[in-house]
């Protein structure tokens, strides 16, 4: 016998179910008057530094139908590459930028929309720069464990080509699933749960 290591097991995940919006965006779901406003609906204010962008997209199932009951959260660095987080040790993030957004897909179309700023460069573990990116987390009915992925920018070809994460992807044909499309002034980032264009999801 040895001494026990005394680690605990992570609580098992369960699906967010069809009514995740009651808990996470109650005003959107029609339960009004409990919380003043839904969390994560605005990431910026009129003093936020950086280039304003709109990111929109949909989550598609294996038959190509958009999910109408998904909840999408994003997390990103500010324009200078700092996270607005207590575990950010490199410097002070823009106090007028939360870095975190939450959006329920539109009940008819399934589209999510984030008004944010373009993130700056964040270093990889070994100090190499990572190309500007936004971290995504997707939950819904039918998803047993929330899915993590990243969105990169189509106008950052040089940085993307040496990004330490994108270059880790063995099948280069899958890299474009992580790169948004420019659509007018907006970026469109569609997420495919299955199929030929299945988005690369991360075990992080």
């Amino acid at each position: 016998m040895t001494q026990p290591l005394n680690y605990f097991k992570e609580t098992p995940s369960q699906t967010a179910g069809p009514y995740v919006h009651i808990g996470c965006t109650p005003n959107f779901s029609g339960v009004s008057g409990v919380f003043h406003e839904d969390l994560g609906i605005s990431m910026t204010n009129d003093q936020t530094e950086g280039h304003r962008i709109t990111v929109r997209g949909m989550v598609f199932d294996g038959k190509g139908a958009p999910l109408k009951d998904a909840l999408v959260e994003i997390w990103q660095a500010d324009a200078k590459g700092f996270y607005n987080s207590p575990s950010e040790m490199r410097g002070q993030a823009d106090p007028n930028f939360t870095g975190w957004g939450r959006c329920a897909g539109h009940m008819e179309s399934g589209e999510f929309v984030f008004e944010t700023v373009k993130p700056g460069i964040v270093p990889f573990k070994d100090g190499r720069p990572m190309a500007p990116h936004i971290t995504f987390w997707i939950v819904s009915r039918g998803i047993n464990v929330g899915l993590h992925t990243r969105m990169y920018f189509p106008d950052e070809e040089t940085a993307n080509a040496t990004d330490p994460v994108l270059t880790r992807i063995e099948h280069k044909s899958r890299v474009p699933t992580l790169i948004a499309r420019k659509e007018g002034d907006d970026y469109r980032f569609d997420i495919h749960l299955q199929g030929d264009n299945e988005t690369v999801f991360f075990d992080i």
Binding site: G62, S140, G142, N144, I169, L193, Q194, E198, T199, F201
Partner: peptide
């Protein structure tokens, strides 16, 4: 519902 909503390719470990 998990049948059409579960990724089929391996997750990228990072």
């Amino acid at each position: 519902t998990s049948v059409l909503r579960s990724p089929q390719k391996a997750l990228l470990s990072l």
